[in-house]
Design a protein around this nucleic acid. Structure first.
Lengths: 319, 319
DNA sequence: GTACAAGCTGAAACGCGTTTCAGAGCAAGC
DNA sequence: GCTTGCTCTGAAACGCGTTTCAGCTTGTAC
């Protein structure tokens, strides 16, 4: 627990000199540098990160705000973030919100209290208007569309992405298409619904299945689907996990994919491949990486960045 | 950016009094308390967490060390950790190691530099001997077996757990059993191999498939399996994800489960259910919660805890 | 011989909240 | 009347690394 002053005393130099040695400042004579280094070794000096943080005002930490840490949908984002953070010697404080507004606020309060240098928000229920009030306390980057110009954003445009997916289904000859959403009122779900009505002639409210978030939900969907009078011939999911849950249960119930119903996933999680799931791959790892970089750069005076990435179709056997 | 001294000046009291108001200390007259509160409101005071941290010596943070943040196997652990952390107003700093020793060391160095109050290690390649050298800097809790008595541990005993799984297969009439491991030399894999040789009469080296970590690996395994001359009639996996990857590909290649080969998973991830996967459920969320509690309690002077939890069989259609 | 730059050094201030300690005022107990 | 104890208050020290600024020495340029 020796501190910098102990070292200074032991080496018979000033604390400034010790600090200079630690930070490899050139203006230290070889002799004193050596004395300091010896003292540090002898006393087992370890720099106190808390003091450093208070002194410099930089925490080397970002908070990552996301609804569920164990939802595989966020896995690739987080992976990209983690990799980027490592290269810049940054730490990630994970904050699980479960879509609760108070939790989102608590997470962004870390910014206010200087507990983190910036915030990366993967999904949120908070309005951008409210989010903007936190902007004065540090950079914020989101993975969603519609951010105001003060907030960095790297995302896929879910309207275009969904449009692309619907066209894949159309090209495969499907006209009667249903869509599966997570929360109906999230910005991305709203964009998806718009794309659905714009793109699909036979689109109808009854074929929008919303509230499906997990693979378990996907399993349940089979019953909901089978109980429909008029069924769509193809389903476009907004998560591979939900799609897989559906596939598994469908097989058990004798529903043949893609003959009875085609299935198109969304996100491109590796496990989809094992089951031959057709999907629209979203470059989530790239997004994670770019979100980190945006936040980092903005912190060092860089501009707000807003980037929109595109999805690509990964063919499988379910369409 | 007003600080406590600005408030004191504004309210015409000492900084001590301001601090007392902030911390709800009783010995403050109503009049001064009000003056201070008014000053805080007027100047928009926000407590600086960094200063608090330096002053109290407590960071309110634990580092969570795990190989891959996006590997679903760790999802439930992390979920349990996050929930417990929330109740104690603690933050989790996630550290992804990719099983690299230098990364594990860097993570535990946070402890040395007082950047976190404790460490929770979900998986590690570091020896317990080395880990013990970090113990002086704060509490450590691991999710693995074999920890020395200075290190808290909440885990499933993989020997017993694997034994239980092998008996499930035996009871279903399987004699020729193969096992699938992640890294062959990890402590849990070693325990699993021991259980395998102890429990299965026809056990053989060739039927130990190791190096299978992801669903993609599980998919690959089908080829490896099919190219065996003498094939086992049942496979016991050590991860549901790998098992699912196998199931998906097996179906595509016309390998019928469980007629041609039975499949038993391990961990109990929800998505397994959708595919009717038989599995041994590991109480990972409970473990996460308990690991947090152990670390927290130890920090406040509590004892080291070592707990072993058991797995339960979840029947499915693949055995 | 003078000026200016570069190398080296350390005292003091800074970031900011908490805690200790000393002291004043006042009421209750004997 | 005196002791004891509680309420209230603030100065100063503490946690600890960085940065600014002033000052000294030595070297180089003209």
């Amino acid at each position: 627990m020796a501190n910098i002053r102990d070292i200074a005393r032991h080496a018979n130099v000033s604390v400034t000199t010790v600090s200079r040695v630690i930070n490899a400042h050139p203006y230290v004579s070889d002799e004193k540098r050596e004395r300091v280094q010896r003292a540090m070794k002898e006393l087992g000096y370890l720099r106190n990160q808390q003091a450093l943080t208070l002194s410099t005002g930089r925490t080397q930490r970002f908070v990552v705000v996301l609804p569920y840490m164990d939802h595989p949908y966020y896995g690739l984002f987080v992976n990209g973030l983690a990799k980027a953070a490592l290269t810049k010697d940054y730490r990630l404080v994970m904050w699980q919100t479960e879509y609760r507004l108070d939790q989102e606020r608590q997470a962004l309060d870390l910014l206010k209290h200087r507990e983190v240098d910036g915030a990366i928000v993967l999904s949120h229920t908070m309005t951008f208007e409210e989010m903007t009030t936190y902007r004065a306390y540090g950079p914020i980057a989101v993975a969603t569309v519609g951010a105001p110009e003060t907030i960095s954003s790297v995302h896929v445009d879910h309207y275009t992405a969904f449009q692309a997916g619907l066209r894949v289904l159309a090209e495969a000859g499907h006209e009667d298409i249903g869509i599966i959403l997570s929360r109906a009122d999230s910005p991305s779900s709203i964009a998806r619904q718009r794309a659905y009505f714009d793109e699909v002639a036979s689109a109808r409210e009854r074929w929008i299945f919303s509230g499906y978030l997990t693979s378990e939900d996907g399993k349940q969907l089979v019953s909901a689907f089978l109980s429909e009078q008029e069924r769509p011939r193809a389903l476009f999911f907004s998560s591979d996990y939900v799609a897989l849950g559906f596939l598994g249960e469908a097989a058990r119930r004798g529903l043949r994919v893609p003959y009875d119903v085609a299935v198109l996933g969304f996100d491109g999680h590796p496990i989809g491949q094992a089951f031959g799931l057709s999907t629209m791959r979203s470059p989530n790892e790239d997004i994670g990486r770019a979100l980190f970089d945006a936040t980092f750069q903005e912190m060092t005076g860089g501009p707000v960045v807003q980037k929109s990435l595109t999805v690509t179709h990964i063919p499988g056997m379910t369409v």
